[in-house]
């Protein structure tokens, strides 16, 4: 159950290799001071339909080396590379779905910031929805509608006590 399949392993290794390459690059850049003309030139568009598409796509891809943020928000070397690819594809006129598809094929659904609603991952989306929609009826049905039965651990049910008392009264009257 915990064993990953071969594809995942290969993908993981590929990732590790990429990350370490990216890491060593960033170390180099930090240590010595060569001018990284490419990085300086790459400025992401912020306006127009292309800019909007770029924003939308790159904010739904995760930064592989960070926790919690998208490639758009990250300036890790690896995210910069992904943003470069996204920009190229946006300029080549590809649609949002096509670009996301491209990344999912390469890196698996892991690269998407929210799991695609397919296969097992449907569960991730259905669970909250079902809590939200089925919760109130469930509470009503199981908690509020149910009459409280007072019969526990030495505390006898109120109705039983009343019946018993009445029975005793009857006895006394008789």
């Amino acid at each position: 159950m915990f064993l990953p399949n071969a594809r995942t392993v290969i993908r993981g290794l590929l990732f590790a290799a990429l990350i370490s390459v990216a890491g060593s690059f960033s170390c180099l850049a930090g240590e010595s001071g060569p001018v990284d003309e490419d990085a300086l030139k790459k400025v992401w568009p912020s306006d127009g339909p292309q800019g909007e598409l770029f924003h939308e796509v790159s904010s739904s891809l995760r930064c592989p080396t960070c926790t919690g943020i998208s490639v758009l928000e990250s300036d890790a070397r690896f995210s910069q590379q992904i943003k470069g690819i996204v920009l190229e594809q946006v300029q080549a006129g590809k649609s949002r779905e096509q670009i996301l598809q491209f990344f999912t094929e390469r890196y698996g659904p892991w690269i998407l910031r929210s799991p695609p609603a397919k296969g097992f991952n449907v569960l991730a989306w259905l669970l909250p929805l079902s809590i939200l929609l089925a919760g109130p009826p469930a509470v009503w049905f199981f908690v509020w509608r149910k009459r409280r039965v007072v019969s526990t651990l030495g505390v006898r049910a109120a109705e039983d006590i009343i019946k018993e008392m009445q029975a005793r009264l009857e006895e006394m009257r008789a």
Partner: peptide, 12 residues
């Protein structure tokens, strides 16, 4: 369960 890694972040 599935052996496949997924990500759940802000958009979710």
């Amino acid at each position: 369960i599935t052996g496949e890694r997924t990500t759940v972040q802000a958009p979710y």
